[in-house]
Design a protein around this nucleic acid. Structure first.
Length: 605
DNA sequence: GTAGGGTTAG
């Protein structure tokens, strides 16, 4: 009774405008309360309760309230896109913000197709995207590697005049980079007037992605020079990765230092990439040391150390670490088995390798890939189990590639099995990638068997088939810079000095009884020309350059894209003795450590 | 009044 009379009383006193205001005020308060509740939601269930309350109060039709509702549902860590979608569909006129929220929600939940579909929907419903829409939509394109859509969206960006937005530009660089179109990625980057660290990060990782490692380092240098420098983990990891591929130990060390100075706690990924860098740059000890100091390790960490030990010819140790890994309860995957098997093949651990291969198939149920077969065929072939290797190739469920046939061929050469060698060569000649060394190996085998007619036949066939030789190069790091040399290189500004040095080296080598081995020069030219050609092999140029520009007694490290020819191998052994230098060469296959006239591969590679 | 970019390794 009391309540009614008070209400009547106040109704009588207050003008109606004020009532409306006080009602609005209480509604505002309720709205505030609901928004507070939304922020506190920890699960979809809690969220649904608040949703019901908002519907009851009729607040849903307020654009701000529905925005908050939607973004809570779509973007929190318990987000449910299904539920968000049902809310979204109830909106009469979804705004740009609503669309942005939904697209972002889909992207967060890795549903990139739906994100792009919704973006297309925006156009149909004539809702104009804004500068917040594009970073998200472009991310979806990047993850889907959908360059066609990406380019179309780039067009929309221009049409809406958003091409100068820093965030949109960074997303474009990233999108093109992830789609593998390095040129468009660079084009966006270059026309930017102001660049942020994220811009550099995006363009550097775009280059890392397609393996343009030297460009990666050059961009990193540009970035430091332009003063847009913040030691960021992601950028430094790209740099470390570039160093790994280029064999640039010194630069890699600098990046490691920068990481230690700027990042308090290095995560597993960073540590693993550092281990990989040290090992693949020839510093096995440092890599091992870092690996042993890792408190947390995963499959990838084990993978890099196992294959690294294999590359350096430490098969037994690789196997020890492999069993440590299994003991730790980490399940080996197919890539690790490639590392383990190749470690066995590099160290001639036949029984162990075959045992592991069988256990991999039978106990762990991993289906062997071409790479596994390649390792095992190599392992058997080197050990002289040629028939067995050949049987394995025949029984494989996949068609052998040329790597496998090449490994059979080289095993046949080592163990003098001309018959099988012919079969392997036959298969190689039939494949599309013509490699001159295949012709050479077979013709040498014929020569050994004194079948001169066949030698001539192979030589003719070689020129008829018109093989294409992959251009070889050698990389060497001098004073924190990586220099690249190609065969017969005259491009380096100091090349006059290099050829002078080559001349001097030759002169000293002759005292040691060096004779150029022209048997692997696959050119139809006379002996003198062949000797000239050998002198200009990229590895020799790189060694000469390093001898000139590094201090006496310091080690030289070279990285090559191809395997070494026998002449370069002999040559480097002698140079290591004459100049008293340790020379480490990482070729396509493994490491060679030259010291005092010997090589760690014991001339077997 | 609500929100955005680059995140790496075998």
């Amino acid at each position: 009774m009391m309540g009614t009379s008070v209400l009547n009383h106040s109704h009588h006193l207050l003008p109606s405008k004020d009532i409306q205001q006080s009602l609005d005020l209480s509604l505002k308060q309720k709205e505030q309360e609901c928004l507070c509740l939304l922020k506190k939601c920890k699960s979809l269930e809690e969220f649904k309760q608040v949703h019901v309350q908002i519907l009851k109060l009729g607040l849903f039709w307020d654009s701000f309230c529905s925005s908050s509702l939607l973004s809570t549902c779509a973007l929190s860590d318990w987000s449910s896109m299904d539920y968000a979608c049902s809310i979204f569909q109830q909106l009469d006129e979804p705004t740009t913000f609503h669309f942005n929220t939904m697209i972002k929600g889909y992207v967060n939940n890795m549903n990139f197709e739906s994100a792009l579909n919704l973006y297309a929907d925006m156009f149909q419903r004539e809702v104009e995207p804004d500068n917040f829409t594009y970073p998200v939509v472009l991310k979806a394109c990047a993850r889907l590697a959908a360059i066609e859509e990406g380019m179309q969206i780039h067009g929309h960006v221009f049409k809406l005049g958003l091409e100068d937005d820093l965030f949109v530009q960074n997303s474009l660089i990233n999108m093109y980079g992830k789609c593998g179109d390095i040129e468009l990625s660079c084009a966006v980057f270059r026309r930017m007037e102001e660049k942020s660290v994220a811009s550099w990060s995006a363009v550097i990782s775009a280059h890392a992605r397609v393996g343009l490692w030297r460009e990666c380092l050059m961009l990193f240098e540009d970035m430091s020079r332009e003063g847009c420098w913040r030691a960021e983990e992601s950028i430094l990891v790209s740099v470390v990765s570039a160093c790994t591929h280029l064999g640039a130990l010194h630069l890699g060390r600098c990046a490691h230092g920068a990481l230690l100075r700027n990042i308090t706690e290095l995560n597993v990924a960073v540590r693993t990439s550092l281990v990989d860098m040290y090992v693949k740059c020839g510093s096995l000890q440092k890599g091992l040391c870092l690996f042993q100091n890792m408190t947390k390790r995963n499959q990838l960490s084990y993978s890099v150390i196992i294959s690294g030990l294999g590359l350096h010819g430490h098969g037994r140790q690789a196997l020890r670490i492999f069993s440590e890994m299994v003991e730790e309860g980490l399940e080996p995957d197919d890539v690790i088995y490639v590392g383990v098997l190749s470690a066995c093949s590099h160290s001639g651990l036949v029984e162990e390798g075959l045992d592991i291969f069988n256990r991999m198939k039978n106990e762990y149920g991993i289906k062997p890939t071409m790479q596994h077969y390649g390792c095992v065929v190599d392992l058997m072939g080197r050990a002289g189990l040629l028939e067995e290797a050949f049987e394995l190739v025949k029984s494989m469920p996949i068609k052998a590639n040329d790597i496998i046939w090449r490994s059979i061929l080289s095993a046949c050469k080592i163990h003098d099995n001309l018959k099988l060698g012919e079969v392997a060569a036959e298969n190689l000649f039939r494949s599309s990638s013509h490699n001159p060394s295949d012709y050479l190996v077979l013709s040498n085998m014929y020569a050994r068997a004194q079948q001169w007619e066949n030698v001539a036949k192979i030589r003719t066939k070689m020129f008829e088939d018109g093989f294409v030789q992959t251009p070889g190069y050698s990389l060497v790091e001098v004073k924190r810079k990586v220099y690249q040399f190609v065969s017969q290189d005259k491009s380096n500004c100091k090349s006059g000095k290099i050829y002078e040095m080559i001349h001097q080296m030759e002169w000293q080598l002759r005292f040691e009884g060096y004779m150029a081995d022209t048997s692997q020069v696959m050119l139809d030219v006379d002996e003198e020309e062949k000797r000239e050609r050998l002198k200009g092999h990229s590895q020799k140029l790189a060694i000469a350059f390093a001898l000139i520009h590094t201090s006496q007694g310091s080690a030289i490290r070279i990285t090559r894209n191809l395997r070494m020819c026998t002449d370069c191998h002999t040559y480097t052994k002698l140079i290591s003795m004459i100049y008293e230098r340790e020379i480490t060469v990482r070729d396509r296959n493994r490491f060679h450590r030259f010291k005092d006239g010997n090589c760690s591969c014991r001339d077997y590679w």
